[in-house]
């Protein structure tokens, strides 16, 4: 069975919050995964005492576990890496 690293949406209406999970590809989005390796909060936030008002997004991640899963997953299911069959265009 295919295993993927993907996001599971939790939170509320207009207030998303994602678990970064490792799960079988055929299981439902919010079903119990093999492992939760982190969270992703897509709502940009300000620092409370920063007058510049710059926005940031918080991601919690177990980098060791993420590397482990990336190592054993099939290459085309590796997030963030280009699939091998896609030709790279080299410009002069």
């Amino acid at each position: 069975m295919v295993v993927k690293i993907r996001l599971a949406r939790f939170g509320r209406t207009n207030q998303p919050f994602y678990n970064i999970v490792v799960a079988h590809a055929r299981t439902a989005r919010n079903s119990k995964p093999l492992e939760v390796i982190g969270t992703y909060d897509p709502v940009p936030k300000k620092d409370p005492y920063d007058p510049s008002g710059k926005l940031h997004k918080d991601i919690k991640l177990d980098i060791t576990r993420a590397k482990y899963w990336v190592g054993i997953l099939e290459p085309k299911y590796r997030p963030g890496l280009p699939p091998k069959h896609k030709p790279t265009v080299v410009k002069d």
Binding site: V36, K54, K60, L61, D62
Partner: peptide, 25 residues
Amino acid sequence: FEFRFEQINAEEVGPTGRARNAVGW
């Protein structure tokens, strides 16, 4: 935006995998 990656330990989930301070929902 600035993305802030905080390193956590995903294995601190307790015996049932439902520990209160475990990562995520």
